[in-house]
């Protein structure tokens, strides 16, 4: 049995750790509420824009007129990786990075080159260690409440590279927020939008006003931006939820450990007292004779 001093020290150290994880849990919980609200509020917008994008990509005339809808053979694939800046968020980053690893493996088998733009330091760190990945840019300063202006340079880079044919497909890897307990790492193609089989044929009589080119010119970027924006918001909400749960588990574990060690400490202390008493009374008996 470990000595009481060692046990005492261990209990104190765990208690300190618990204090920290508890504080992080509370911080994450309050950030989480706002992040979730923001993500859920704009979800309708994202769904509406996505269905419009699908509708566009089902139309032959759109693909001919708007280069952002061109489908080429994929030789260079760009991943937009949404991760967090700091760790201690459970499996939040690991799940997204697992998706990335799968994608990279597929690319290698098919002979396509992989490029990555990372949002968040964790994803960037991971990619720097991989030799086959071309890390184009890292955006790590979006903060807790990103604005459309934060996203603009990222969007411009992507669109520019796509138009110059430096990349042929853009895939977003992010974590979709479902509930406090469930966040799903998700992969979705940002550009060019894949053809939606259902919507492809039924909308051919749609009237564009004033004309197709003008409508596409004004709306395409906006629609794509909405997808990117939502991915970032979902990521943020997921990150805070994952961190809160992870920190809650850590605090609970710490409490359990403290309980176990306290029991052991008490047993050890009592054993020491009992032994001392036995020795004293043994000594007294010895003196009597």
């Amino acid at each position: 049995m470990a000595s009481t001093i060692v046990l005492k020290r261990r209990i104190n150290s765990i208690r300190n750790t618990r204090q920290i994880t508890k504080a992080m849990e509370l911080v994450a919980a309050s950030k989480m509420r706002r992040a979730q609200e923001q993500a859920l509020r704009s979800r309708d917008y994202q769904e509406a824009t996505l269905s419009l994008l699908y509708r566009f990509s089902g139309m032959k005339e759109v693909e001919l007129r708007q280069p952002l809808f061109y489908r080429r053979k994929v030789q260079n694939r760009l991943y937009v990786l949404v991760t967090s800046n700091s760790g201690l968020a459970g499996a939040y980053n690991a799940n997204v990075l697992k998706l990335l690893t799968q994608g990279l493996r597929d690319d290698r088998d098919k002979g396509a080159k992989s490029k990555v733009i990372a949002i968040g330091n964790r994803g960037a760190q991971f990619c720097r260690r991989l030799s086959e990945v071309d890390l184009l840019a890292v955006y790590s300063n979006f903060g807790d409440h990103p604005t459309a202006n934060d996203l603009r340079p990222l969007l411009n880079t992507i669109v520019d590279k796509f138009l110059k044919e430096e990349i042929d497909e853009v895939v977003m890897l992010y974590t979709k927020f479902q509930s406090n307990l469930v966040q799903v790492a998700t992969q979705s193609v940002l550009m060019p939008r894949p053809i939606d089989d259902e919507g492809a044929t039924s909308h051919d009589f749609t009237n564009f006003e004033p004309d197709t080119d003008t409508v596409l010119f004004h709306s395409t970027l906006r629609l794509i931006e909405a997808q990117l924006w939502q991915a970032v918001l979902e990521g943020l909400a997921s990150e805070q939820s994952a961190r809160m749960i992870a920190m809650k588990n850590a605090s609970d574990n710490a409490s359990d450990l403290i309980e176990d060690y306290t029991l052991e400490f008490n047993t050890a202390r009592q054993a020491a007292i009992t032994q001392e008493l036995a020795e004293i009374s043994g000594g007294v008996e010895a003196l009597k004779d």
Binding site: F205, E209, S219
Partner: peptide
């Protein structure tokens, strides 16, 4: 309000996408 000026939309308007 659209690029071409104001438009009114009533029931059974033809399919339309505009800015």
């Amino acid at each position: 309000p659209t690029l071409d000026g104001q438009i009114g939309i009533l029931t059974d308007h033809m399919p339309l996408i505009s800015v």
